[in-house]
Simulated scan of single mutants.
Amino acid sequence: MRSDVNTVENVKKWLTDNGKTQAWLSTEMDVAPSLISQLFNGTRKLQPAQIEKFAKITGMSISELASSADGFSGKLVYSLRGSISNEQGERAFNQLLLDVEHFVQLLNK
Protein backbone atom coordinates (compact mmCIF):
# COMPACT_ATOMS: atom_id res chain seq x y z
CA MET A 1 0.00 0.00 0.00
CA ARG A 2 1.24 3.52 -0.71
CA SER A 3 2.60 5.52 2.21
CA ASP A 4 0.07 8.34 1.70
CA VAL A 5 -2.79 5.83 1.88
CA ASN A 6 -1.21 4.28 4.99
CA THR A 7 -0.91 7.73 6.54
CA VAL A 8 -4.58 8.52 5.98
CA GLU A 9 -5.64 5.11 7.30
CA ASN A 10 -3.45 5.50 10.39
CA VAL A 11 -4.85 8.97 11.09
CA LYS A 12 -8.41 7.68 10.66
CA LYS A 13 -7.66 4.86 13.11
CA TRP A 14 -6.10 7.29 15.57
CA LEU A 15 -9.18 9.53 15.38
CA THR A 16 -11.47 6.56 16.04
CA ASP A 17 -9.31 5.20 18.87
CA ASN A 18 -9.22 8.63 20.52
CA GLY A 19 -12.87 9.57 20.01
CA LYS A 20 -12.04 12.46 17.69
CA THR A 21 -13.77 13.58 14.50
CA GLN A 22 -12.61 14.93 11.16
CA ALA A 23 -14.11 18.28 12.20
CA TRP A 24 -11.94 18.26 15.34
CA LEU A 25 -8.89 17.43 13.21
CA SER A 26 -9.63 20.27 10.79
CA THR A 27 -9.80 22.70 13.73
CA GLU A 28 -6.49 21.40 15.12
CA MET A 29 -4.85 21.73 11.70
CA ASP A 30 -6.49 25.13 11.05
CA VAL A 31 -7.89 23.99 7.70
CA ALA A 32 -11.38 23.66 6.26
CA PRO A 33 -13.25 20.44 7.10
CA SER A 34 -13.67 19.88 3.36
CA LEU A 35 -9.88 19.61 2.97
CA ILE A 36 -9.72 16.83 5.55
CA SER A 37 -12.58 15.06 3.77
CA GLN A 38 -10.80 15.37 0.41
CA LEU A 39 -7.54 14.08 1.88
CA PHE A 40 -9.34 11.16 3.49
CA ASN A 41 -11.27 10.16 0.36
CA GLY A 42 -8.21 10.53 -1.89
CA THR A 43 -9.36 13.44 -4.06
CA ARG A 44 -6.55 15.65 -2.69
CA LYS A 45 -2.94 14.61 -2.40
CA LEU A 46 -1.23 14.79 0.99
CA GLN A 47 1.40 17.49 1.25
CA PRO A 48 4.49 17.18 3.47
CA ALA A 49 3.26 19.99 5.74
CA GLN A 50 -0.01 18.13 6.30
CA ILE A 51 1.82 14.92 7.16
CA GLU A 52 3.95 16.85 9.66
CA LYS A 53 0.80 18.27 11.26
CA PHE A 54 -0.73 14.79 11.44
CA ALA A 55 2.41 13.57 13.19
CA LYS A 56 2.38 16.43 15.68
CA ILE A 57 -1.33 16.04 16.47
CA THR A 58 -1.28 12.25 16.80
CA GLY A 59 2.09 12.05 18.55
CA MET A 60 3.22 9.51 15.95
CA SER A 61 6.41 9.73 13.92
CA ILE A 62 6.18 10.18 10.19
CA SER A 63 7.51 6.63 9.79
CA GLU A 64 4.76 5.31 12.06
CA LEU A 65 2.12 7.21 10.10
CA ALA A 66 3.39 5.78 6.83
CA SER A 67 3.61 2.22 8.12
CA SER A 68 1.11 -0.44 7.25
CA ALA A 69 -0.59 -2.87 9.59
CA ASP A 70 0.00 -5.63 7.05
CA GLY A 71 3.75 -5.50 7.66
CA PHE A 72 4.62 -4.91 4.00
CA SER A 73 5.50 -1.26 4.26
CA GLY A 74 9.25 -1.62 4.50
CA LYS A 75 9.66 1.19 2.00
CA LEU A 76 7.88 4.47 1.63
CA VAL A 77 6.25 5.14 -1.71
CA TYR A 78 6.66 8.52 -3.38
CA SER A 79 4.63 9.87 -6.26
CA LEU A 80 6.56 11.96 -8.77
CA ARG A 81 5.31 13.66 -11.89
CA GLY A 82 7.05 14.04 -15.22
CA SER A 83 9.12 11.90 -17.51
CA ILE A 84 12.77 11.13 -18.07
CA SER A 85 13.86 12.12 -21.53
CA ASN A 86 17.48 10.94 -21.65
CA GLU A 87 20.09 8.70 -20.04
CA GLN A 88 21.55 11.52 -17.94
CA GLY A 89 18.11 12.22 -16.49
CA GLU A 90 17.67 8.54 -15.67
CA ARG A 91 21.01 8.45 -13.84
CA ALA A 92 20.10 11.59 -11.89
CA PHE A 93 16.73 10.09 -10.98
CA ASN A 94 18.31 6.84 -9.80
CA GLN A 95 20.75 8.85 -7.67
CA LEU A 96 17.83 10.75 -6.18
CA LEU A 97 16.10 7.49 -5.26
CA LEU A 98 19.28 6.23 -3.61
CA ASP A 99 19.69 9.50 -1.69
CA VAL A 100 16.10 9.34 -0.45
CA GLU A 101 16.52 5.73 0.65
CA HIS A 102 19.68 6.64 2.58
CA PHE A 103 17.89 9.59 4.19
CA VAL A 104 15.01 7.38 5.33
CA GLN A 105 17.49 4.86 6.75
CA LEU A 106 19.17 7.63 8.73
CA LEU A 107 15.80 8.79 10.09
CA ASN A 108 15.01 5.28 11.28
CA LYS A 109 18.25 4.93 13.27
Rank of each mutant, 00 (worst) to 15 (best):
R2L: 09
R2G: 09
R2Q: 11
S3P: 02
D4E: 03
D4H: 06
D4F: 02
N6P: 01
T7D: 00
T7K: 00
E9T: 08
E9G: 01
N10W: 00
N10Y: 01
V11P: 00
V11T: 02
V11S: 00
K12W: 00
K13N: 07
K13Y: 01
W14T: 01
W14A: 03
L15I: 05
L15F: 04
T16Y: 13
N18H: 11
G19A: 04
G19R: 08
K20H: 05
K20N: 01
T21G: 03
A23R: 11
A23Y: 10
A23V: 12
A23T: 13
W24N: 03
W24S: 02
L25E: 00
S26R: 04
S26M: 06
T27Y: 05
E28I: 03
E28C: 06
M29E: 04
V31I: 12
P33V: 10
P33Q: 14
L35E: 07
L35P: 11
I36C: 03
I36F: 04
S37I: 09
L39H: 12
L39D: 07
L39C: 04
L39V: 07
G42P: 06
R44I: 08
R44W: 04
K45P: 00
L46I: 07
L46G: 03
Q47E: 14
P48E: 09
Q50M: 07
Q50R: 11
E52G: 05
E52T: 12
E52C: 09
K53E: 10
F54Q: 03
F54H: 01
A55M: 04
K56A: 13
K56R: 10
I57D: 02
I57F: 05
T58P: 07
T58K: 07
M60N: 08
I62P: 02
I62Y: 05
S63P: 06
E64W: 01
E64C: 00
L65H: 01
L65Q: 02
L65E: 00
A66Q: 13
D70I: 10
G71N: 06
F72I: 10
S73Y: 03
S73H: 02
K75F: 08
K75D: 12
K75V: 11
L76W: 12
V77A: 10
Y78K: 11
Y78H: 09
Y78P: 04
S79H: 15
S79R: 15
S79V: 15
S79K: 14
L80W: 10
L80S: 14
R81Y: 14
R81E: 15
R81M: 13
S83W: 08
S83G: 13
I84K: 13
I84Q: 13
I84L: 15
I84S: 12
S85W: 13
S85Q: 15
S85I: 15
N86F: 09
N86M: 07
Q88R: 13
G89F: 02
E90P: 00
R91E: 10
L96S: 09
L96I: 08
D99H: 06
D99I: 02
H102R: 15
F103K: 12
F103W: 13
V104L: 13
V104R: 08
Q105N: 14
Q105K: 15
L106P: 09
L106F: 14
N108Y: 06
N108C: 09
N108R: 14
N108G: 13
